[in-house]
């Protein structure tokens, strides 16, 4: 017992996860609920509606995994915690997966006892400035004050960018986006920086959105994706391949509308394998053979999820066409290995 405690202490100090002997899938099944960690409410990705329901792109990834396991998208317990404790909540086993616009970086992947599964959204850091400020490029921000969220990669990227280009940027930090936006609108800083996905949504809520423009530079790569604990390869496979399945479904033209038809009568072998009428991918993952049928019927394919939560017809309004987030076959880099 003392050894275990010591080991746990070491685990905390060294930020390596204790090994949870029990398989995550087994734990989730026993509990009857998937503990999925999202962040404090953020539009488009994990939004909390006034009726208490969660929705968004990252939330749908939780729902997809829940459907894969239980056949029901609602067997999810959403844990909404601040960014500061997100990784600890994974390490201590409170959350089974983390799906909250978390940037995949080498340090996080190697030193926190966590594993990134795959990328669900490609983001990048941009700047927003008042249109009448005369600033036309991020390189004009010499000596400027910039509002930035604290405790995120955004803050670090800004520091790097400032140093690399000798900009001597001063930062104004806060953990609450609304406070930052208010500071920016009140003239407390010359520019506001965040991931572009967040910037677009925030600008739409400004008193006069057209008075603020994006600078052309994207100063960082922000591949965002779900995270699982290290040391449970089967669980990692399950989460990863559920997401791959959703992406493959879009590529193959399987939608929530036609999935039942296609499952009954698969038009080609790729679809047959995806929907489990052929092969045994589902069983190998510890799931029903036709788990993807349930997932797509309940959640839809990647394109449907995207358009539903952050597409141009939503308030968040992030265009997809011609960006990194288009399918690889349409000029983007959303790409999933084949389901076979």
């Amino acid at each position: 017992m003392r050894l275990l405690t010591l080991a746990s202490c070491a685990a905390v100090v060294g930020f390596t996860a204790p090994s949870f002997a029990q398989e995550t899938l087994e734990t989730v099944r026993e509990r009857g609920m998937l503990n999925c960690q999202v962040g404090l409410p953020t539009p488009g990705f994990y939004a909390l509606a006034d009726d208490g329901t969660w929705s968004g792109l990252d939330v749908d990834l939780c729902r997809a995994v829940s459907t894969a396991i239980f056949g029901d998208p609602d067997m999810v317990e959403y844990q909404s915690v601040t960014s500061a404790v997100r990784f600890t909540e994974m390490q201590n086993g409170a959350s089974d997966m983390l799906s909250r616009t978390t940037t995949w970086t080498a340090v996080r992947d190697t030193q926190l006892g966590l594993d990134f599964t795959t990328v669900g959204f490609y983001d990048g850091q941009g700047f927003l400035v008042p249109a009448d400020s005369g600033i036309e490029s991020a390189l004009d921000l010499v000596g400027a004050t910039v509002c930035v969220l604290t405790g995120t990669t955004t803050e670090l990227n800004l520091a790097d960018y400032s140093r690399a280009n000798d900009l001597d940027i001063t930062t104004v930090t806060n953990e609450n986006v609304n406070v930052l936006v208010e500071t920016y609108l009140g003239g407390g800083c010359d520019a506001y920086t965040n991931d572009r996905s967040g910037l677009a949504a925030r600008r739409s809520a400004f008193p006069d959105p057209s008075a603020h423009v994006f600078l052309p530079e994207t100063i960082s790569k922000e591949p965002l994706g779900p995270v699982v604990r290290e040391g449970d390869a089967a669980w990692r496979d399950l989460v990863t391949w559920t997401i791959f399945g959703i992406i493959n479904a879009e590529e193959l033209g399987v939608t929530s509308g036609n999935v039942m038809e296609m499952a009954a009568n698969p038009p080609n072998p790729n679809i047959a394998r995806l929907l489990g009428t052929e092969g045994n991918i589902g069983e190998e993952l510890g799931l029903e053979p036709d788990f993807m049928v349930d997932v797509i019927a309940a959640i839809g394919n990647y394109g449907e999820i995207y358009e539903r939560h952050i597409g141009i017809n939503t308030p968040v309004g992030i265009p997809r066409e011609g960006t990194l987030n288009a399918l690889w076959s349409e000029g983007g880099i959303i790409y999933a290995p084949p389901f076979r």
Binding site: P41, A47, L48, F206
Partner: peptide
Amino acid sequence: NMARAVGEDTDWLGLFI
């Protein structure tokens, strides 16, 4: 925390004061 969530609701984005 609930008060903070109001300003993150898509319909009421930015409503925090």
